[in-house]
Simulated scan of single mutants.
Amino acid sequence: MAESTTARPPETSLIPVIGSGQRRSVKVTALGGGHGLSSSLSALKLVTGSLTAVVTVADDGGSSGLLRQEMDVVPPGDLRMALSALCDDTDWGRTWRDAMQHRFSSSKEGVPSSLENHALGNLLIVTLWQLLDDCVAGLDWAGALLNARGRVLPMAEIPMVIEGEVLSVDGDGQPVRETVRGQAKLAKAGTIENVRLLPEDTEPCAEAVRAVEEADWVVLGPGSFYTSLLPHLLLPGLRDSIMQTSAQICLVMNLDLNANETRGMTAAEHLLVLREYAPEIRVNTVISDPSTVQDKKVFEDAASAVGAKVLWASVSESDQPGVHDPLKLAAAYKQVFKH
């Protein structure tokens, strides 16, 4: 897809504007993908008026996977979820959020629709890409439609492939190492090593790099550790911007530390993996819910090894322990950004 140099959204009343007389908002760039990034954005839009999301582009499952395969486009699903999370909290924003998230299903039992399980927002985003021939401009126009309280950018403007080596045991009890390719498969594979992105020479989205460079804070996570968080550190140009930015970096730990990708890993081991893939990474603050960490001293020591202090904060939904509460997470972000 062409580099982003063409049409941008018109200046309409749908685009939020912060008055020049107001105190400047902290500039935040949030990196991730899927439900984790969506949760983070739902909280961040409550504490800053200057917010950019940079989204992974390796998804190959469901509606996104089909559109990627058939249209040769960046998978739109995670981008759609980020836009929906940033919608304006008005009837207009909520209605368009629900429309973007709506999935088609057949009204006739046993007769699947040609649109079966496609999300309307995915189709709308791909439509804008084809009309404008510009990945970033299409997302900006979609954001204007939702009156999004922030900007959504792809990590790269071409679809990427994530692969890694998975360790298992064969029928004779012998260890087996195999290469698993594709985000959908890798997310369910189990113990993962040597994760990488292809093509290796892919250029990052220029606007995404600029957003990292100009941020006051860069937020990593929450989200699937290997397939949503690490990709940002595996794309060379984006990785360089993260390592060189003057922004402070905040890592948000997952509430479920025993998901498929990280089954059996402790909270401290998550940070060790981060150092393994990005030894030079400098993290300032780690937000972690105390209910998810068994050995807090070991975790604080691991955080200190990447330069970070731990902010212990209860950030989960009261009735859904594995889901971040936007208001609680927003309060944690507000506390972090004060320093």
Results as ranks from 00 to 15, higher is better:
H339S: 00
G33M: 04
S316W: 12
K338M: 00
E200I: 11
N258R: 06
L271Q: 07
L186N: 14
G33E: 05
H102I: 06
T90D: 06
T95M: 12
P10T: 11
D134P: 13
T5D: 12
L66Y: 11
G237F: 11
A302L: 14
Q320N: 10
A156M: 15
L123P: 08
D201W: 07
L123E: 11
T292D: 10
G143W: 09
A184W: 08
H324G: 05
E214S: 03
Y277L: 05
L66G: 06
T90W: 04
A187K: 12
M1A: 15
A302W: 09
A189Q: 11
P154N: 15
I162M: 10
D89W: 01
A247E: 07
L167Q: 00
L83C: 12
R68P: 09
D295G: 15
T90V: 01
L257N: 00
G32M: 04
P9E: 10
I192G: 03
K338D: 00
F104M: 09
R23F: 00
N254L: 12
D319N: 08
G19I: 00
M100Q: 12
M253T: 13
E261D: 04
A267H: 12
L14P: 00
F225H: 02
L230R: 02
C135L: 14
T191I: 10
V73H: 06
N254H: 09
A53D: 07
S105P: 06
S40G: 13
G36C: 10
S106E: 03
S50N: 10
L329F: 04
P199N: 13
P204R: 09
D319E: 10
V286E: 05
H118K: 07
W92D: 09
G34C: 09
R80E: 13
Y333A: 00
E213T: 05
A330F: 01
V111Y: 06
D60P: 09
L233A: 05
R97K: 14
K185T: 14
Q320T: 05
R68L: 15
P222H: 06
T48N: 06
M100L: 15
D170I: 02
Q69A: 15
I158Y: 15
N254Y: 07
V212K: 02
P290D: 14
S106K: 03
A215H: 04
G49C: 06
A215G: 03
Y226I: 02
A313I: 09
V273I: 08
A119E: 08
T292F: 08
V283I: 13
G221T: 05
I287L: 11
L31E: 02
L230C: 05
Q183I: 14
P9Q: 11
R8I: 09
S40P: 02
F337W: 01
S288K: 07
P326F: 03
L86R: 02
L238W: 02
G19L: 02
K338H: 00
V17L: 04
Q130A: 14
V218D: 03
L145N: 15
W92K: 10
P290R: 13
D88C: 02
S20L: 02
P326R: 01
A206T: 10
V286K: 04
L274V: 05
C250Y: 03
G164N: 01
G264M: 12
A330D: 00
E280G: 08
T48R: 04
S228A: 14
L46D: 06
R196V: 14
V111K: 05
V252G: 11
G143D: 13
A137R: 08
M265D: 12
T29M: 00
A259P: 05
P175Y: 00
Q320L: 08
V323I: 09
